[in-house]
Amino acid sequence: TTGTTGSGTPNGIIPPATTNGTSTGNPGTGSSATMASSQTNGKAPATTSNTTVPTAKNVAAKGTVIYGLKKVGLYKSPTFKASNRLAWYPKQKRVNRPMFVVTGYARSANGTLRYKVCDVNHGRKTASKTGYLTASKKYVGPVYYATVPKNKRITVIAKTGINAYKSATLNGKAKHYKAGIRLTVKKLVKHNLTTRYQLSNGLYVTANKKLVIVGNN
């Protein structure tokens, strides 16, 4: 799977707004998608933005994975209209949230920032669709944790559990943890555009929010 390091300055460049004023747009017509695994090292689709304008803060980097926090839509163009909607993604429980890889950026006709994305919901009818998604933080967010929890504890929430590995590349399976198991974290490790948690026993697990949650839940 491809991953995301959370919010921050993106690797790509954000296009300029087409108006002088800022516009909130309609984030409810954004979009989302769901990635199944997140414990492997897939490559992100090629990016498509060639703009040359300074980057913005709190924008997902190209190649990272975001997911839908609320109901969102995928559109053919950055100016969202019902006539160019490709798909709706309903609000889902955390473990089933739809996920996308960010491949570029664009602005709507009124200057609202959009993400250009690829649907990575493997096994679903929308898988591999490309289009535009809201960039509103109220509707989409990073899939991977970017910090170590204060109490240094995480809980496995994936229904089928997660695997622990001997390296941050998630190669060399060493152990399997079932859903509900609480684990102690030693540190957060970045791997390409994803993150991993190194456990107190030295093994590594995914830091994907759909598979683990911080705290003793």
Rank of each mutant, 00 (worst) to 15 (best):
H122C: 08
L86C: 04
R114P: 04
G141H: 09
T134M: 01
S108Q: 03
S136K: 07
L86W: 03
Y105R: 02
A82Q: 13
K116H: 15
G141C: 04
T147H: 12
K129Q: 13
R85V: 04
R97T: 06
K93N: 13
K152H: 15
L74W: 13
V120M: 12
S77K: 13
R97C: 11
V101T: 14
V102T: 05
Y75P: 02
S128P: 00
V140D: 12
Y115K: 04
R124I: 07
L113Y: 11
G73Q: 10
M99F: 03
K137Y: 03
P90Q: 02
K150Y: 11
K125E: 11
V140T: 15
R85T: 04
D119T: 00
S83Q: 12
T134R: 04
Q92Y: 09
A109V: 05
R97D: 06
T130G: 02
Y145I: 01
Y144W: 12
N96V: 04
I154W: 10
A106P: 06
V148P: 06
V72Q: 11
G68E: 10
L69G: 00
R124H: 14
V95D: 12
K137T: 10
T79D: 13
A146E: 05
Y105H: 03
K91P: 05
K76Q: 15
N110Q: 09
R114C: 05
K70Y: 00
S77Y: 12
R94S: 00
